[in-house]
Design a protein around this nucleic acid. Structure first.
Lengths: 224, 224
DNA sequence: CGTAATCTTGACCAACGTCAATGTTCGTGG
DNA sequence: CCACGAACATTGACGTTGGTCAAGATTACG
């Protein structure tokens, strides 16, 4: 979303709530009554399968919205859980309706954001379908680092990384044990590593090349 | 999109083009100047990686739109190729702008459609990250069958399936050879099989159970 | 200081990929 | 109608990648 949209949302003085790590924000199957915006902290969007395994669909960072699908389609198709302590802004459906009625560009902003997320989802699908273990981990780390950098939440060579090995495994489609092997390999190949809840990337270009990652391109955008 | 939206689009008398199988509809990196709607035939949305491998991101069926991301974000991040002979409606950016200006609900329809696609993408990600070979093929087949059924393009026990083994492999993240093994296994377990360009599903519930597939739920939807 | 959670590693096994050979289908020209 | 070739399907043998099990090591925290 663009700054003007954010200003409009702020003007509605939405409720702000703080939640500890490990709290469910939305649960699969619930009715979608609220649109959240993540202000501080990280959250995980995931599916839990019948056999107990989990697939992490996306990592939600400060500034991301939570629960739009549930609001517009009626029922949440996935769960979201806080990974760290978080603070979220909450907008009831009524407020969302008011916002779109008053500012038509808001809806367009949502669509644009959604399309950007589709692109990241496409890349993640490609990574799961076609890359080896170390490259998957590399890509995943790279993507998070780039997203944080764009939001001014990371330096060039490091960023916070509160995911545990298990979370990482559930995100990149590997077992916890194999993630360890992939991390060692990755360190040998690119010197990137996890340490003390931080991702350290001494040579970002090298990691990007290793992962086949490239910054999303932007051209002139249509304004509807 | 809902029927009234379709009626509006029809009212603009968009150009309709016919293309043979194997034609590029949009290419990664191009400027997005046109929004297409697939009227007849199938197309594939995919990424091609540096090493020549391909990941199919989605199968596009009659009624699906093509190229929205490129239009709103400036540049296409993926390619789309016709799988069969297709006919597509084309809307220039100007027509899209006119449409949204005149009918605000159009934009909302696009967002809703996009959110539905996100759900399918989430399921595909889960399938690649957490399922075995036969289950992946089962899920993929099941999803296509269900989508065609919802559009009245398939019977309960069969549907067209023009993908070759290679396409299927590139969609579910397996090698062509292993897809064969998975298909044999799938036939033994569920009696579902591919034959003569058709997908045959004698027992749809059994296949759905095998794949962990469930129809998307709908609740009351917010109207913005 | 002790307990629980998480991380880390080695040994072994199953799933999947690669290679290469053979079969099948289908369109094309004689 | 048949012969031929090209693309695609199918299968077996074998190598590689990643999963599972189980045992310590380390960290976080009361």
């Amino acid at each position: 979303m663009r700054p003007p949209d954010l200003a409009r949302i702020a003007a509605m003085k939405p409720d702000q709530t703080t939640l500890p790590a490990g709290t469910d924000v939305i649960r699969k199957g619930e009715r979608g009554r609220t649109l959240f915006t993540l202000c501080k902290g990280w959250a995980l969007r995931y599916h839990r399968l019948a056999d107990g395994t989990r697939q992490i669909l996306d990592v939600l960072l400060p500034g991301d919205t939570i629960g739009l699908g549930g609001v517009l389609l009626g029922i949440h198709a996935h769960s979201v859980q806080s990974l760290t302590a978080v603070s979220v802004c909450t907008l009831g459906i009524g407020q969302v309706v008011a916002l779109t009625a008053e500012h038509p560009a808001f809806l367009q902003g949502l669509l644009r954001t959604q399309l950007e997320e589709e692109r990241r989802a496409d890349m993640r699908l490609t990574m799961l379908g076609r890359m080896g273990a170390a490259e998957r981990v590399a890509y995943f780390a790279m993507e998070i680092h780039a997203r944080l950098r764009r939001r001014g939440l990371a330096s060039t060579t490091a960023c916070p990384f509160p995911l545990r090995r298990t979370d990482l495994a559930d995100a990149v489609g590997l077992s916890r044990v194999h993630v360890m092997r992939a991390l060692r390999q990755l360190y040998l190949d690119t010197e990137a590593r996890l340490h003390g809840g931080k991702l350290l990337v001494p040579d970002s270009a090298r990691l990007a090349g290793y992962a086949g990652f490239s910054e999303p391109r932007v051209g002139r955008r249509a304004v509807l």
